[in-house]
């Protein structure tokens, strides 16, 4: 296993523990959730194999599910994100391509690119998650409100963390 592989192996547990012990209790206005663990999939190195991504997504989602008592729910949403990620990365390749072997971060590609990268994937994740949980579209309005509020909340936390790691790298 390469050095980056080992780091990501540890990050897996860091994200899982942060999610189930800390962020699970952090719900604003009863609608805004912070699903920071999605970032684990978003920030794996650019060339990561699609199959590996989905497997990692499934395992992380499954771990989260055990603590949320919602077996299959988070796994399902995260596998969708893991599947779409590489295609989306291909679509929005910046001029000059990506730095090889590095994760697609805000530091390497800029704020505008990062927003275009993260927002649709986070939206898809939240959309799948909340509408599967609601088991259909019968509570459409409130569920959509949850999706949007959680998107804003998660995105803010992600950006703050990205800026922190930016400072550290300089």
């Amino acid at each position: 296993m390469s050095k980056s592989g080992i780091i990501h192996f540890f990050l897996f547990f860091v994200y899982a523990i942060a999610q189930v012990l800390l962020l699970k209790n952090l719900v604003l206005f009863n609608t805004a959730f912070c699903f920071l663990y999605v970032v684990f999939i978003l920030l794996l190195p650019v060339e990561t194999n699609n199959l590996l991504l989905m497997l990692a997504g499934f395992l992380l989602g499954f771990t989260i599910d055990i603590f949320y008592d919602s077996l299959g729910l988070h796994a399902m949403a995260l596998v969708v994100v893991a599947y779409l990620r590489n295609y989306w990365l291909g679509v929005i390749t910046p001029q000059g391509g990506y730095d090889s072997g590095l994760p697609p971060t805000l530091a390497s590609n800029g704020l505008q690119w990062f927003l275009i990268y993260a927002i649709p994937l986070l939206f898809v994740h939240h959309f799948v998650l909340f509408f599967t949980e609601a088991a259909g579209f019968s509570r459409f309005g409130f569920t959509l409100l949850k999706v949007v509020m959680s998107l804003l909340f998660t995105l803010s936390v992600v950006l703050i963390l990205q800026y922190f790691s930016l400072e550290r790298r300089r």
């Binding site: 989905m54 989602g61 499954f62 055990i66 949320y68 077996l71 299959g72 399902m76 596998v79 088991a135």
Partner: peptide, 26 residues
Amino acid sequence: FLLLELFCAWLVVENNQYQSTRYFNS
């Protein structure tokens, strides 16, 4: 992708059953 999603969907449906003695929960 299809396989994993189907598996997840099965888990979700299965977990909705009212009573169960399961291992994978809190």
